[in-house]
């Protein structure tokens, strides 16, 4: 699948944003963070900016963004519609939370709770969009949504470490969350990669032309020598070797570097936390970009069966 910049930006930015929103809201709710306007602002403003930026990026994926409003209508069947609804709905408690915290100097508990829940729900919807796509076997597996959720939490928590360190309070809770979420997310990712790699193909080219019994079937005359939108969408290929290298890089930057950095920073405390959290956040961002790029680039769509793939 084509790693479209709009989708990479959307899923990573909004994922991190919802993760941060959830961590911040829950921290506020739990009283780990003080109900001071500054404490609210340091986390909620970046979170909402990330979410907003991601949502904005997502509209670049639409060929007709002028009709994006229609996406709220089909929440009964469509995970994309649900995601849209959840994303926008989450703004309501998030804004209440932000107003309460930033202007009122208090953390409204219900809004905080709903913000966190909305954030989780939105990321869950995002994960489900992919997880329910039967024609893309690598996405269509049980771990897809958990990976999205864990990734969002890990990104949000890592960011939270940096922000709480800058703020000077709540760092420990954020840090512990990050130290748990990071290995969890990347561990799940590793499992997800493995199961994707090991899953037997869902269909062969022979089956795709209705001759499942006859093997093998090879494409010898492409339908068109010219291209098409669908082929551009689905025909993206990344070499296995290249992908393996990128996976190692992603693991390194996603957990290999940030985890010890965060751990050391937390142990050292004070200004060290901030100093160590900064590279950890940057590494994690880079890792996220790679991970999301691979998420698309490694996924194969079944339509490839009619375009030269022996099996998908």
């Amino acid at each position: 699948m084509r790693p479209a910049a709009s989708l990479l930006l959307f899923t990573t930015l909004s994922g991190a944003g919802y993760g941060l929103l959830a961590v911040w809201a829950l921290s506020g709710l739990a009283g780990v963070l003080p109900p001071e306007p500054l404490a609210g602002a340091v986390g909620l403003v970046p979170a909402l900016l990330l979410i907003g930026g991601g949502l904005l990026a997502s509209t670049f994926h639409l060929a007709r963004p002028d009709r994006a409003w229609r996406a709220f209508s089909q929440w009964r069947t469509s995970w994309l519609s649900r995601e849209a609804v959840a994303a926008v709905a989450t703004f309501a408690p998030a804004l209440v939370l932000a107003f309460g915290w930033l202007l009122g100097g208090r953390v409204p508990p219900l809004a905080a709770f709903l913000s966190a829940a909305g954030a989780g729900l939105t990321v869950l919807c995002t994960g489900q969009i992919y997880a329910t796509l039967v024609p893309v076997p690598r996405w269509h597996q049980p771990l897809t949504t958990p990976v999205f959720l864990a990734m969002a939490l890990a990104s949000g928590a890592t960011l939270a470490v940096l922000l709480t360190a800058a703020l000077g309070s709540g760092t420990t809770a954020a840090g512990l969350t990050a130290l748990v979420a990071l290995p969890l997310a990347w561990g799940l990712k590793l499992l997800w990669w493995r199961s994707g790699d090991r899953a037997p193909p869902r269909a062969t080219a022979a089956a795709a032309i209705g001759l499942a019994g006859e093997t093998p079937a090879r494409l010898v005359e492409p339908a068109h020598s010219a291209g098409s939108w669908l082929l551009e969408e689905t025909g993206f290929r990344v070499a296995r070797r290249h992908a393996a290298r990128l996976r190692r890089l992603a693991l390194l930057f996603g957990v290999g570097l940030p985890w010890p950095l965060l751990a050391l920073g937390l142990l050292a405390g004070g200004g060290w936390t901030l100093l160590f959290a900064l590279p950890a956040v940057l590494a994690k961002a880079l890792a996220l970009a790679i991970e999301r790029w691979l998420f698309f680039a490694e996924a194969r769509h079944m339509v490839g069966l009619w375009y030269g793939e022996a099996a998908v």
Binding site: H61, L62, R64, A68, S78
Partner: peptide, 17 residues
């Protein structure tokens, strides 16, 4: 709105933008 999701959801590659 041209989101393309339906094309992704079709295993038979039957949709084109």
């Amino acid at each position: 709105m041209g989101c393309g999701l339906c094309a992704w959801a079709c295993p038979y590659g039957a949709r084109e933008l």
